[in-house]
């Protein structure tokens, strides 16, 4: 009983419950398709890009910030990597350079926020546009059809790798989520980030180098957006400068559904992944049962409001 109560206190308990309920609902509606392993695997695969970016966004939101440029950064990464593949670079090297560039851009986001003392919302609103423009320029405003050189394997299990159950991209996302959840719980950096998000003035007073923590955090968010970009490229098999428009909103929604607070100091990586998965389930389920696109959008929006409303009510309840 106590263990159950402790479980209910976890920030990701709400989204987990919602996920189970929504899944069961669609399962009852279309039992023959929704229980099939292929549906589950497809949904996992479709969550990878948002999920990976949401891990980074959780850190940023925990820090009390926000990153609106993540969608543009994902698109830019697909373009950079595709260009390199086109020029004959190997898949591993091209992906590495793409991820490195995204990490550097994340660090620049952080540097601008710290250096100019402008709110993250405005800085990343600016870089959102700059990066989108840069992606279009680099791609000559068209899709880059490059040889993927095995990069597409990230998102498929293939005929002779069925022992993997889900594609390597899904495993990578889970691994990254595990690593960064551990960073939050067991490292000085994680503790410092949470302290900055909770009360920046107290953190400064306690000797925490607030600026440095911010730059690191945005760099990590850039790194994860870069990896999400590689996954996106692996799915699309082209570098697309107009891809992932509005992705930042799905990513932020995942984090918020997962218990993150835009006021900072609160956020759960497990919760964010569950939030991302919840949105995929709603999208897939609605398609399966034949609900039109506009109904899906209304449903997703309603889930965000209900989830954050419940969370807010839970916070207000006296201990």
């Amino acid at each position: 009983m106590n263990a159950l109560r402790a479980l209910a206190k976890k920030p990701w308990f709400g989204p987990l419950l919602a996920l189970i309920v929504v899944y069961l609902l669609f399962l009852m509606w279309t039992p023959d398709t929704f229980a099939r392993p292929i549906t589950l695997i497809t949904m996992a695969r479709q969550t990878v890009v948002v999920g990976t970016a949401a891990v980074g966004m959780t850190l940023v939101i925990l820090l009390g910030g926000i990153d609106l440029s993540v969608g543009s950064l994902v698109a830019l990464t697909t373009v950079i990597t595709a260009r390199l593949l086109q020029n004959g670079m190997s898949a591993a090297s091209a992906a590495m350079v793409g991820i490195f560039a995204a990490t550097a851009i994340g660090a620049i986001n952080g540097g601008l926020i710290v250096g100019l003392r402008v709110t993250p919302f405005l800085i990343t609103l600016g870089t959102m546009s700059i990066l989108r423009g840069a992606a279009k320029g680099l791609a000559d405003e068209q899709k880059i059809d490059a040889p993927t050189r095995g990069l597409e394997m990230l998102m498929t299990t293939g005929p002779n790798r069925s022992w993997m159950i889900v594609p390597p991209g899904v495993w990578t996302t889970l691994l990254l989520a595990g690593i960064f959840a551990a960073v939050l719980h067991f490292t000085v950096f994680g503790k410092h980030a949470k302290a900055v998000g909770s009360n920046e003035r107290t953190a400064r007073l306690a000797g925490i180098q607030v600026g440095r923590i911010k730059v690191y955090t945005y760099a990590i968010a850039g790194f994860l957006a870069g990896i999400a970009g590689i996954f996106e490229l692996s799915t699309l098999t082209v570098g697309d400068p107009t891809d992932s428009i509005g992705l930042e909103l799905s990513v932020i929604a995942s984090v918020v559904i997962g218990g993150g607070s835009l006021a900072g100091g609160q956020g759960s990586i497990v919760g964010a992944l569950l939030g991302a998965l919840l949105m995929t389930v709603i999208r897939t389920g609605s398609t399966q049962v034949g609900l039109p696109n506009w109904v899906q959008e209304i449903l997703t929006g309603a889930i965000i409001i209900v989830a954050t409303g419940i969370d807010s009510a839970r916070q207000r309840k006296p201990a």
């Binding site: 949470k194 302290a195 909770s198 009360n199 107290t202």
Partner: peptide
């Protein structure tokens, strides 16, 4: 506003 981070635990 500065002395303690109200939302963090006593321990933190």
């Amino acid at each position: 506003a500065e002395g303690v981070a109200l939302s963090l635990s006593i321990s933190d």
